[in-house]
Design a protein around this nucleic acid. Structure first.
Lengths: 191, 191
DNA sequence: ACCTGAACACCGTTCAAGT
DNA sequence: ACCTGAACACCGTTCAAGT
């Protein structure tokens, strides 16, 4: 007999899921829609993924890896202030490029330890080295949390359409990053 | 004949929805579960709400109003720095008290103009008055966006379990707010 | 005037049957 | 070894029929 040959792949499934996520939101990434997008029937997806939660998780991991890659180059800059500014810009640019993917990253996923913790830890390590040069080791973790909280909060509110009072949003972001760097420099020089 | 008398109310429905949201997340607030919680069958809910999206929206408005009430008192403090610190603390405390409700506020809801824009605008106005006293009118909007982005970002990452590197999270929040106030004061004195 | 069961179109998931 | 249709339990929503 001739056993059925694979007609799709995990990569194709994840890519199709991400495409649906961007066009129609998380609700649109149904097993049936993803299956149709890769030219197969829904039950066949279960050969490669445990179910819809596993698919969402796989998409999130894919996104996390890409975000890490998009921000990593900024860590190489000499001046920590420049590096932080570049990091913030690339971070926000990624969110604009893939808003659905970005929002997925911070949706309350299963609280299990996800593989993307690895990528996150790597990115966090890079940022921590930057903040350490800015405020010293003792305050570097708090400083990194301040920066990430601002960047994530700003981008997330922006994507949710929360900035409805006019004004230049690009400038507000830049202003925020600069004010934080300023505030951190003062904290750093205080000790 | 005896026409059927109302066996529930919109308020009860919204309250039941919020309770389900906190216990089981947004997925748990199904029309059937909410109906069961108020002692009725799912189709009866359509007498008071247009459908599930309208129910979610009603819950979100309820949450927004409550959040506004919880933070408003802080705006009365004399010193703008104290007021900002108190505002930030009450904001975060609300998110800890009602994590499901808080996360709903920033879920991508329908982008329609929602009634909570009113409440938001009121809260924004109060914060803008504070930041104006700190950095002047020209930069007050940017400063307000910096503060809200940080507070939301911090709380949202916290609720998502994103702070996995140890350290004192309460202290990191306080550190962030203080550093921002510091940075804003420098910006303010520069002009 | 409100409530209900029945029905419809969808969903995720399982599984026996095909190749 | 992978794919499929059929089936199951669940959704949200509609609507005619009850009181």
């Amino acid at each position: 007999v001739s056993p059925a040959r694979a007609r799709t792949s995990t990569e194709a499934i994840v890519a199709a899921g991400r495409a649906l996520l961007e066009t129609g939101g998380l609700d649109a990434v149904t097993m049936q829609a993803v299956a149709a997008a890769v030219g197969v029937r829904a039950p066949s997806l279960y050969k490669r993924l445990a179910g819809r939660p596993a698919l969402i998780r796989a998409i999130a991991d894919d996104v996390a890896t890409e975000l890490g890659g998009a921000t990593a180059p900024a860590l190489e800059l000499e001046d920590p202030r420049d590096a932080i500014r570049a990091l913030a810009d690339h971070y926000r640019a990624f969110a604009h490029r893939s808003p659905g993917a970005y929002q997925l990253l911070f949706s309350k996923l299963l609280p299990e330890a996800n593989p993307s913790v690895e990528a996150n830890a790597a990115a966090a390590r890079g940022l921590l080295q930057l903040t350490e040069r800015l405020v010293g080791r003792e305050r570097s973790l708090e400083a990194a949390r301040l920066l990430t909280a601002f960047a994530h909060g700003f981008v997330s509110m922006e994507l949710a359409g929360a900035f409805r009072l006019g004004g230049d949003v690009d400038e507000a972001y830049r202003f925020g990053i600069d004010a934080i760097i300023e505030g951190l420099s003062v904290s750093g020089s205080q000790r």
